[in-house]
Design a protein around this nucleic acid. Structure first.
Lengths: 342, 342
DNA sequence: ACTGGCACTCGCTCGCGAGGAGTGCTAGCG
DNA sequence: CGCTAGCACTCCTCGCGAGCGAGTGCCAGT
């Protein structure tokens, strides 16, 4: 059954009021606050229909109506325009992000900014190694049988790993190794390195072969096969906002979920995200069981139109979607621009 | 006024029971659970004295007694022995920490381990740069006028900073810079570098002087003058344990405080910590206003007896002090040993 | 110095009733 | 046919008071 315009308007009003007041909204209050042209009774009839269709529900008989996940979904898809950011917000974003000294700094500032602007929990993934290319590889002797391998990626990430050598290696040989790996790998995307790394080993002379093998094993395993994803989190205190009404009484499961990097990666990981417009997952749409009852707004970011990582926020289903979506999108763009500069 | 042995015993019993049950403890229950040799009435008299002295209090007339911060303090200082860890705990620690691939990994594992074992919020400071020495400095050209400076510290920390050069610099000159700074600074503690960095600039020939100046400015400012401290946090979900009884009803201020790195550093920062035995701050003893109502157990860690960073846990004043202290101390030692190996 | 007894305090829980917001239904109106 | 006004009904919320019980303080006795 198709909902006519007025019913949609009623749904929008319910969502907006509920988000604003956090209380079930009744027919009378609705017509007053939104000066609709019809009477409460009419609105009640519309509400009955909306309820039948599953867009709203009553917590109990004789209480006002509350949007369901489905109602929010319709609201987000059809009934809301993304709010333009206020100049103050734009300024806040700019002010926050200038002066970052390194990637860590950028990510930390971003996640705090996002938490502050949306007043929710913010999550930012570091640029994914799998979407990075090698900018430089450095080998630092730690002892005669240990090297530290430092990889600097074009996304600004710097990773280090210990390499145990099968036999002591003079410094001159370390230099040769360094030159060899850099010549072969600089500029190559990490996902494309495996065959080249194999070449490297094959091409290495017998005296350096064992060392190169150890090195390539570390390279492949820890940087390519299961590259470490990193995540920053901020604003968990915002979960306590809105009393115990949100998150069906306990923020426990939410906090637990947020401590699992794996879960966070699923949430805002860059896997299936594109940078055009944020993705919104509402309540039950979330795969993570602990996060039913929350909504997640996430998007990819990166220099230009490419995506190197994801970011987003986690909040109650009862959130200001237009504002949150706008903020997430704006922050992602700024961060992308910032990365493009380096 | 001196408390006789039995009164101390009563205090200890009250603390233990309250920690275990989370409920005010009454005289009758006390004599039963701890089979004291005296009657409830006697215990009541002792309680009256303990209350006068400020070690315990009643939430309201006709409720049991609850320890005050002062009571906990006495308990920690005089009435408790540090529990030895169970073999299971020792095993958990070992299992958790082997297989860490780099410093990030070590810190992350440690903080999660600590949170899990103590069932509280755990905080681990990365080895402080101010207590590190330079192991290697690397310069990577990003463009003709930009270098990335990577410092590898003996504590395993790796820091990178962008250096803007006043003029384009050929690769050969980059190498000369690299050699110069490494010869001068490798092995030197960061706090001791400033005069040497100055020497470096002075000794540099005129053609490299401008580049060296930029480089030294970055070195001094971001690595020595205000070195970035890093912190890892885990177990915030544990704050919700024990309902709303702990933290006077709201975990909000606690979560807020935990988001401030500055605050965390004050808490567990290595400044005034020694590695011998954990420091315990109970309730009001905390300087941080938001953390009144919590207790903090912290200690320093590092290879051998040196201290390179701090770690600890934050929990309700009503916590298992002997167990927590033992765990914090044990984890700190293991981490210290682990660092010593690298 | 400790104990048993006893009166007392006071927070907690429950049931009850009044109040009120909001609803669904029905009849009437344009 | 859609909208509206009126009305009876539901059910949540809040406040009140009684009963209960844990725990206490005090006092007299050993």
């Amino acid at each position: 059954m198709a909902l006519d315009d007025r019913k949609l308007e009623v749904l929008r009003a319910i969502v907006e009021d509920y988000v604003a007041t956090q209380e079930p909204v009744g027919s009378k209050a609705l017509v007053e606050r939104h000066n609709l042209k019809v009477s409460p009774a009419t609105v009640r009839n519309d509400m009955a229909v909306l309820e039948e269709e599953g867009y709203i529900r009553q917590p109990h008989t004789s209480a006002g109506r509350v949007p369901t996940d489905r109602g929010y979904r319709l609201f987000v898809d059809k009934l809301s325009r993304i709010k333009p950011l206020s100049p103050a917000e734009r300024r806040a974003i700019e002010r926050f992000l200038i002066g970052a000294v390194d990637l860590d700094d950028v990510v930390h500032r971003t996640v705090r900014l996002l938490a502050q602007l949306t007043r929710q929990v913010a999550v930012v993934q570091y640029p994914s190694l799998s979407r990075s290319a090698v900018r430089h590889l450095e080998l630092v002797p730690i002892s005669t049988t240990r090297l530290m391998l430092v990889m600097i990626a074009d996304t600004g990430r710097v990773e280090q790993r210990l390499v145990e050598l099968p036999a002591p290696l003079p410094d001159a040989d370390v230099s040769r190794l360094r030159t060899a790996v850099n010549e072969k790998l600089v500029g190559v995307r990490l996902v494309d390195t495996p065959p080249l790394v194999q070449d490297l080993v094959d091409e290495t002379g017998p005296e350096l072969r064992p060392a190169m093998s150890s090195l390539s094993a570390v390279l492949l395993e820890t940087l390519v096969d299961r590259p470490e994803e990193r995540i920053a989190l901020a604003g968990t205190a915002n979960l306590t906002r809105g009393g115990l009404l949100d998150f069906q009484g306990s923020i426990r499961p939410v906090l637990e979920a947020l401590e699992e990097e794996v879960i966070l990666l699923k949430l805002i990981g860059s896997a299936d995200v594109d940078a055009s417009t944020p993705r919104v997952r509402i309540g039950d749409e979330n795969e993570i069981e602990h996060l039913r009852g929350t909504s997640v707004v996430s998007t990819g970011y990166g220099p230009g139109t490419t995506v190197v990582g994801g970011l987003g926020v986690v909040g109650p289903t009862r959130m200001d979607y237009p504002g949150t979506i706008a903020t997430v999108r704006a922050v992602a763009r700024y961060v992308g621009d910032l990365l493009a500069q380096n």
